[in-house]
């Protein structure tokens, strides 16, 4: 019932992870694996697309916290994109916008990665 799926694609050196469904304590390990695989292969530029995510629990939020330090220390970032209002509210309540960057679309996030390189 509470399905969760993720899809990974890359544009140049930027990795886009698209989330779909319910991200909770039971499905968070899937996302954790995906990001961990990227980090292990030295891929630190990550955009997470939330457009099809219906729900996120504290365990889901924790996944991003687990990697952000390593990613930033290696000159990368985890940027969020295309989040609907409901999900954004959860992020906002907890204070994520103070620490993470949110964008309306993947393109904006990618643009941001590219412009910061220059």
């Amino acid at each position: 019932m509470n399905e969760f799926n993720l899809n990974h694609k890359s544009i140049e050196d930027i990795n886009i992870i698209e989330l779909k469904g319910y991200l909770d304590a039971h499905t968070a390990p899937k996302l954790e694996n995906a990001i961990s695989n990227l980090v292990n292969s030295n891929q630190y530029k990550i955009v997470v697309n939330f457009s099809e995510l219906d729900y996120i629990s504290s365990a889901g939020l924790g996944v991003f916290m687990a990697f952000i330090e390593t990613v930033r220390n290696n000159g990368g970032d985890i940027k969020f994109s295309a989040m609907n209002e409901k999900i954004y509210k959860i992020f906002d309540l907890i204070g994520f916008p103070k620490i993470y960057e949110f964008y309306k679309s993947d393109e904006e996030a990618i643009q941001r990665f590219k412009s910061s390189e220059k």
Partner: peptide, 9 residues
């Protein structure tokens, strides 16, 4: 003491 994945509201 919290691990990196955990937070408290």
């Amino acid at each position: 003491s919290l691990d990196r994945k955990s937070f408290v509201s």
